[in-house]
Amino acid sequence: MLEVINVSKVYDDGTRALNNVSFTVEDGEFLVLIGLSGSGKSTMLRCINRLIDPTEGRILYNGQDITNADPRELRQIRRQIGMVFQHFNLVKRSSVLRNVLSGRLGYTNTLSSVLGLWSAEDKQKAMENLRLVGIENKANNRADELSGGQQQRVGIARAMMQEPTLMLADEPVASLDPALADSVMRYFEKLNQERGTSVICSLHVLGLARRYATRIIALKAGEVVYNGDPDLIDDVRFREIYGDEAVEHSLR
């Protein structure tokens, strides 16, 4: 269970990206964060695994305080939380396999991993995860030789190497075309339904959010303006979240 308690984030330049945000995520939920560009979705997700330090508030994961964890504890918490990025964030010059294996770094001994000595078990696990996302035949290609959709699947395979209990995804399909977007979202759905992994995913297409979310949280100017059932977002709520001018485009 993830508990976000009164979290605020003020950047060095004075931007208040999050303002007193609180919510909880139960195990097995598929939570989607929506909101306008600049509403603080990325900031929220990055606070959860402390790629960004929140300015105020606390975040607990399974009762453990992430915000006050020392570096060692933090690494241990991080390895349980996978993360997938909008721009995939693969090491472009490294092979697909090496990118996927890097998801296992939190569990491996420093020396052997730095020397590239991976156990047969880890390699096997990497190939399995690549097979799961359907690109095991690309294992030895350089990451930048893959298409966008394939790269995002490598990103997912990398996160799955952590055997995470919580998966964060920051607009994982925003740089993919709609058809690919759906197929990538289905990997998260599968992970959520078959392994019981909790998912927190930010999306900017409401249609996708409705289709995959078990719950939606909407942020506006760093504050939670909606937290509830995806189906209950009607036109009035939609305008509240996205502003009066907005018109909903759904996929298909």
Binding site: L51, R78, F85
Partner: peptide, 20 residues
């Protein structure tokens, strides 16, 4: 980007340098 992604997996500083 990749450095951040590797940090997010729980890798330590040496591993981040070696892999990212």
């Amino acid at each position: 980007g990749p450095i951040e992604a590797i940090r997010a997996t729980g890798a330590n500083q040496f591993q981040i340098i070696a892999y990212g």
